[in-house]
Design a protein around this nucleic acid. Structure first.
Lengths: 227, 227
DNA sequence: GCAAAAGTGTTGAGTGTACACCCATGC
DNA sequence: GCATGGGTGTACACTCAACACTTTTGC
């Protein structure tokens, strides 16, 4: 492929390789977790990494991120959002790779993530207790968590983390897992209901040893910004 | 360059080329403007574009953006911020290029931007009256303006648009140019002074046919987030 | 003295925060 | 009847928006 360059006309330019890495967040046992794979071979053997891969010539970045997830974790059709592009010269010891990070939120109960045979393992890891990570993926995750914290304040992005129907207390637990501290129950309910992003159903969560809780749904299961 | 790939081991991968484009904003005659160059040859001849270029193998994205600006507009040492990565398949008819957009704000009076001889022209253009643009650069600029509007609300980023010393009215004019509507003078002054990002000097702007205005400086000439 | 821009406070509305008790259910 | 989590309201502080007149200078 030829790209015209203002210095050396008609030179064949091979710049850095281009990759995407995907950061899938979920709440597991009340903690914010991220989906990681364990690398089976090469200089990063046994270390953990975000699902990622090289961008093919016929893919946009968004498509590349979708394809990586489909291939490496069997996950399809998530709403993925571009986060940032990482480009330190030594971020991959095998060669020069610039990587565009993407993130998404899922309800982990809906996914039974399968280990593909060319990885040693695939698993959810608490973002506060990350294992030894390959590349600059720890840095990526820290950046992603920061952005996620900011984003839940002005969008309904947590819809991805919750099942179709859920109680307000369940929703509050998700917020608490992300921001990392407890929230006042009355204020939380007041704020969320005022946003008008939820609709009450006529169902209740029964079968517990206490008062049943009303179930709610999101008005729209897609990203909406509140003002 | 070889990159190991989980599908085809030891294949030589040539993915999309990687570029950076830089968006330099300034206020000119009270309007938000962006620095553009007019392309002299090729399929985009006579159209305008952001200063940009291919990322070299030994550069980070940040460095590539700095180098592009130095080469194409003689501008050095700006605080550039990464905006977003654009990757539509047909965004450059000459071939497949993914481009990472950067932006910065400058006080245009401090720069005498020179036309390099391989361009037809380099000039500031009002972001609301853009000429015919090459690539997807119009889309990039629209995205950049949106982000800029959001950003001035919670950071001191406009420091780049103002000279070392300035009056509050001058600062207010910059805000008005960016957000695109007039702002109440008393509320603006109250808000800005409360942020505690400015220091009063003992100087005044004299020589006009009206009451002299106090001059202020930024406490820090680097990006600071308020709260 | 007049034109032109600088500078300055108050009020009302709305928003965010802190805080404690009764309710419905399972066992 | 008791343990468990569900559900509710008020008071205060703070923030934001609207609004008009006096001051200082050049001419």
């Amino acid at each position: 492929m030829k790209i015209q360059n203002s210095q050396k006309k008609d030179a064949l330019i091979i710049g850095p390789a281009l990759a995407v890495d995907t950061m899938i967040f979920a709440i597991r046992e009340g903690k914010l977790c991220v989906l990681l794979i364990q690398i089976g071979t090469g200089p990063y053997k046994d270390q953990w990494a975000l699902p990622g891969g090289i961008v093919q010539i016929g893919e946009t970045l968004d498509e590349a991120a979708q394809n990586v997830l489909a291939k490496k974790a069997g996950i399809k059709g998530l709403h993925l959002e571009q986060l940032y592009s990482f480009s330190k010269l030594d971020r991959d010891v095998r060669g020069r790779v610039v990587s565009v990070a993407y993130f998404a939120l899922v309800d982990s109960d809906k996914f039974s993530v399968e280990t593909m045979d060319y990885y040693m393992a695939i698993d959810w890891k608490n973002v506060e207790k990350l294992p030894k990570m390959a590349f600059d993926h720890k840095e990526m995750i820290q950046y992603g968590v920061k952005r996620l914290c900011a984003k839940i304040e002005y969008s309904n992005i947590v819809y991805g983390l919750l099942p179709k129907e859920f109680t307000l207390t369940e929703m509050q637990s998700v917020y608490e897992a992300i921001v990392g501290h407890v929230i006042d129950k009355r204020n939380f309910r007041k704020k969320i209901l005022a946003l008008n992003i939820l609709v009450e159903t006529d169902k209740e969560r029964t079968g517990q040893k206490n008062r049943p809780a009303k179930l709610y749904q999101f008005r729209k299961r897609q990203l909406v910004f509140t003002d």
